[in-house]
Design a protein around this nucleic acid. Sequence first.
RNA 1: GGCGACGUGGCCAAGUGGUAAGGCGAGGGUCUGCAAAACCCUUAUUCAUGGGUUCGAUUCCCAUCGUCGCCUCCA
Length: 486
Amino acid sequence: MSQTIYNVLVREKEVFKPITDGHVMMYVCGPTVYDNSHLGHAKTYVSFDVVVRWLRYSGYKVRYVQNITDVGHLLDDGEDRILKGARREKVEPMEIVERYMRSYFEDMDAIGVARPDISPRASAHIPEQIEMIQELIAKGHAYEVDGTVYYSVESFKEYGKLSGRRVEEMEAGKRIAVRDEKHHPMDFVLWIKAPSNHVLQWPSPWGRGYPGWHIECSAMSNKYLGATFDIHGGGVDNIFPHNECEIAQSEGAHDQIFANNWMLTGTLLVDGVKMSKSLGNFVTIKDALKQYRPEALRLFILSGLYRSPADYSAAVLDAATKGAERINTAARRARNALKTAKPGDASNNERLITLLDQYQMRFTSAMNDDFNAPLALSALFDMSKDLNTAIDEGTASQSVLERATSIYTELGGQVLGVIQPESRTAAGSGSAERESALIQMLIDMRLEARKAKDFTRADSIRNQLSKIGVILEDGPNGAVYRISSL
RNA sequence: GGCGACGUGGCCAAGUGGUAAGGCGAGGGUCUGCAAAACCCUUAUUCAUGGGUUCGAUUCCCAUCGUCGCCUCCA
């Protein structure tokens, strides 16, 4: 079975063929670290996290590069985002960078996003950027005017191929006055001459200055992935101008295809409009985690296609919370049942194993088809239904439960990250073992009370445990417990 | 105005040229001392609207209406 990917460059699904068999070289545009990350970032990075995890699960060796933008990203008024943050918090610009870069990784760790293999910072790659700008000048793609270097969009005939725009159709300068030193209104900046009081500046062949926003991605992807690599990802909202400019820079400098596949994620909306810093309608990941568990956030993100937009609302997050509970409950039941499972009846085993095979295949073909996570999830939900029935009926044998548990762990946990690992709920350390033993003691006490028909006492134990987050569930083989969501 | 994407049940959301996955919610039931969890049944003759192609379209084409993103910083 082969992997397909929707390639924005051609606007259709293509069979994925990496440049080097078995290896995937992948670059995703990372955040500008000047403030806390919000759920819009979560949507994009969870989506690519699952792409990487699935490719690795499929046997590919993936090199995943995601930049950290810590310089050069200008606001409308020409001020650097980092500098603005520094002024706001009255600290050094690089303190802002450190603070929010750590915050970003904290958030990504918290929602189970695996770290990129390389997280290159723009400020640490100034020489590479200067070198690339020099190449562009040498090839006639860029020109300098008084210490500032511009890319000449007319020199690159394919400018606009990703976003479907034509230079001549665009009305540049409609909103922002065009600087008349540009040869063409659409020309964009590669290197910016720094005013003497500008805090972030470096020496260059054109005097002191700092790099434009787009050039970092071209320079750093080239350094770590090569002139041509397999997958370039990001949010669609950056398709123009950012991604388009990256292509112009890289292909202009190297005369070869930049990225073979472009994967762009759909925008996260709130009440129908984009969640963004500037609109102020954002929910930070830290705030979201106060209300929802990581598995619920991931399930919300993965219940739609990565390239579709999604609308954030409490109703949708609540639904995702319930869904995450359902699937985690089923996985936990399977694990618990496995502890006391018997070999079981052969013909029934065969039937159930065949079913599990089919669910695994459904999951696999869904993910192979452009990473269709919502469809893949449906296989896990359907599997849970069959498995729950088998467990209720007592027909789930040891081999069936082993197989089911490994599917939950690998596909639900390792690939999608919506099923939490056992260690979070079970004993793993000395104190956890002690806690577990104590809870078991209370469960035994309650069982005795129930046997004696002392339901007041039995319910009291259950209620008190519930208050400290331990939920009891009675079953035919006695009670099991779980730690509640919040 | 230009470019791109999209309009599927109460909400979210897959999907296919031959009559609609899944999640949440709602109603009924089974189980249970009561809960919880779980399971069963019910909940879109219908996929924005109007045309066209076709034996047949929600799925292909055209038009209309509507929504969103980008064109200016944003994942």
